[in-house]
Design a protein around this nucleic acid. Sequence first.
DNA 1: CCATATGTAACCATTATAGTTATATTTATG
DNA 2: CATAAATATAACTATAATGGTTACATATGG
Lengths: 139, 139
Amino acid sequence: MAANSRFAVAVHALALIAWHEDARHSSREIAGSVATNPVVIRRLLAQLAKAGIVESAHGAKGGFRLARPARDIRLHDVYAAVEEGGFFALPEKGNDRCPVACRMKEILNGVFRRVESKVLPELKRTTLADVVGRLPRSS
Amino acid sequence: MAANSRFAVAVHALALIAWHEDARHSSREIAGSVATNPVVIRRLLAQLAKAGIVESAHGAKGGFRLARPARDIRLHDVYAAVEEGGFFALPEKGNDRCPVACRMKEILNGVFRRVESKVLPELKRTTLADVVGRLPRSS
DNA sequence: CCATATGTAACCATTATAGTTATATTTATG
DNA sequence: CATAAATATAACTATAATGGTTACATATGG
C-alpha cells in the first residue's frame, strides 16, 4: 500500500466500526474491508485505543468498538493519535556559520505554525459521525 | 537528513538566492548553507527551474538566480513545484465488495479537499519576500 | 585551453511503512 | 474444562521514498 496512509486507514476502520456501532468488529473483518493484513489493523487500532478512541476485547466474540459516540470523535483526535509530526518536515541541519541558515529554522517554524493553525480547526470541526453520515444505511 | 524536507530546503535555498538577488549562486554555495550535497540542491532547483521560479546558467560564473522578483514568488508556487501530492495520502485499495470501502475514497477525498482549501490561501499569501524580510540585512 | 559551472545517470544508505508469521494470552461457550 | 476465536506483540521481510555520493557529459567565461 502507499506510504503514509495511516490516517486514511484509521478513518476507514473507524467508519466501519461506527457503521454498526452496537457490534464488536474483529481485526480480520476490518482488514477485509481495507484490504490489508489484520496485524496492520491491530497495530493502528492499538494507537487509537491508547488515545481512548476505541476499546478492544480479547477472546471469542471479542474485537473493537468505539469508546465514545461517533459524534464525539473528531478527525483531529484520530490524526493526532496516528500521525506523529505536523504536516511539514522541519529537521533541517543548516550551517551554523551562515546567517541565512541560522534564521531559517525559526522562519520556517513560523510559516508552518500559521499553516497548521488553518488546518487544525477544520479537522476539529469534522467528526466521525459526519463521515458515517455519508455512508449508505447500515441495513 | 530527515525525510521530506524538500519544501523546507527549497525555501532555504531560495531565500539564500534572494538575499543577494543580483548575483548568481552555485549549488556548492547553497549546499554549504543547507549542509547537504550540491547534487541534492541541483536536483531540487531543477524542479524550481522547470516551474519558472529560478533560472540557471552553465559554465564559469554560472549558477542560479530568481526568475522573477521575490515578491512575486509565493510559497505555494514553491510547494507545488517540489511536493507531488497533497498533504495526506489517499491511495487506499479497499475491498470493492464492501459498501463502506466503496465510499471511503470519495469521502476522504472530500475531507482532504476541504482541509487543503484552508491551507492553500495561507501558502499563497506568503511570498519569498516575506521570508527574506525576516533575515538580517545582506551587507 | 582550462577552470568552473549545471544536468543527470547510477548507485548506495537510511528510514518509514506495510506486510507476514508466530506465539502468548484472554474469553465466551458448549 | 476444552476449544475456538480473538487481541497483543515481537520479529522478521519487503517495498518505496528520500538523501547522499560519485562520475561524467556539456556548457561557458576568460
